[in-house]
Nucleic acid binder design. Structure first.
Lengths: 166, 166
DNA sequence: GAAGTTACGTCAGCCTTGTTGACTTTCCAA
DNA sequence: TTGGAAAGTCAACAAGGCTGACGTAACTTC
C-alpha cells in the first residue's frame, strides 16, 4: 500500500511548509466536521459533549460510566454532568450493574436513539460527501495518517472499538 | 438513508460502518493533534485559543484583528480577551494602521515568536511522525479528504492562506 | 460639513464544558 | 471485620465560547 518511497523524496516532502498546511487542514476540517451536529444541538440545551456521549453509548450499549470516561478522556465529574442531563431528559437509561452494583450501565432510550440518529446522519452525510469527492485511495490515506496521529493509548481504544473489520 | 444505488465498488465502500470509523478517527486524532501544545500551555495561564492566535499571527504578520476574526471564526469579544492577555504579557504587538488608523496590525514580539515556535515545533513533530509512518501517498489522500470536509468558506480561507504552493 | 458606516475595544452576563476537592456506596482482600 | 480501592455524585471554580449594548475614532458618502 503506502511504500514510503525510497530515501530521497520522502525527505523533500516533509518541509515545514507541508507540515504547516497539514496542521491548518486539520484545524479547518475539524470545524466542518463538527458544524452540522453543532447546528442541530444549538437551541436544545445540549452541546458537543452530549453528542459524544450519545455517540459512544449508541456504539457500545450497556457500557459503564468508567468505560465511557476512558474513551472520552474527560473527568468523571465532567461526564457526569452531561450524563445527568441526558438521563433526566429521558434520552439515556442508567441501570445499576447486576454483577457489580457500583457500576452503571448506559443505554439509549427510544428518544435518545432518535437524537443520536439525527446527529450522526448529519455528520455521516458530510463525511460521505468528502469521501466521494476525494475517492477511495484518498480515504485510505486519510485513515492511515489519522491513526498515526493518535496517542498510542487512544489508538488502542480506537482499534478496540473496531469490531466491524477495517 | 445510506447506501446510494449505482456505480460499482464505490458503493461497498461507503457503508455506514466505514463512515463511522472515519468519524471516530477524526475524534481520536484531533485529540492527539492538540495534545502536545496543550501540554506546553498547561500551567502558563494560556490555552488553545492563545495557541491559535499565535499561530495565525505568526503566519500572517501584520494581519488585522478583523482578519483574524474571520479565520478563527469566533466573536470579537472572545478574541479580544485572548489578544488582550497576549499583548499585556508582551507576546503580541498591536500597531495602529498607517493607511487606515482604525485598524490594528498584529505582530509577534521576540517572546511571542519563541512561544509560537515551541508550540508549533511540538505539533509539527507529531505531524511529521504521522506523515512518515503513513507515507507520501497517504498524505495526499489525507489532505484531499480534509479539504473536502471543510465548509466552502473555510476552504476559501484555507486556500487563500496557501501562498506556498501545494 | 453632516450623517452614516466600519474597525476596534470594552462592560456585563450567560452557557457549556473542562477542572479539583470532598463525599457516599459498594466491593474486595488482608 | 475492617480498611482500602473503585464507581459514582455533588459543589464550586475557570476557560473560553456566546449575545447585547455602548463608546470612540476614522473613514466614506451625500
Amino acid at each position: 500500500m503506502s511504500e514510503p518511497g525510497a530515501g530521497g523524496e520522502s525527505l523533500l516532502f516533509l518541509t515545514d511548509e507541508q507540515l504547516r498546511k497539514g496542521i491548518e487542514a486539520m484545524f479547518f476540517a475539524y470545524r466542518g466536521f463538527t458544524a452540522d451536529p453543532d447546528r442541530i444541538l444549538d437551541g436544545m440545551h445540549y452541546g458537543r459533549a452530549h453528542h459524544r456521549a450519545l455517540h459512544f453509548i449508541h456504539r457500545s450499549p450497556g457500557t459503564t460510566v468508567n468505560n465511557l470516561l476512558n474513551i472520552l478522556g474527560v473527568t468523571k465529574q465532567s461526564l457526569n454532568r452531561v450524563l445527568r442531563g441526558l438521563i433526566e431528559d429521558g434520552l439515556v437509561d442508567s441501570r445499576v450493574g447486576k454483577e457489580d452494583k457500583r457500576e452503571r450501565h448506559l443505554f439509549l432510550t427510544e428518544r435518545g436513539a432518535e437524537l443520536e440518529r439525527a446527529l450522526s446522519d448529519a455528520q455521516r452525510a458530510r463525511m460521505r460527501a468528502a469521501y466521494r469527492a476525494a475517492g477511495p485511495a484518498a480515504v485510505q490515506g486519510f485513515r492511515q495518517v489519522l491513526e498515526a496521529m493518535m496517542d498510542p493509548e487512544m489508538k488502542r481504544q480506537y482499534l478496540a472499538l473496531k469490531e466491524g473489520g477495517v
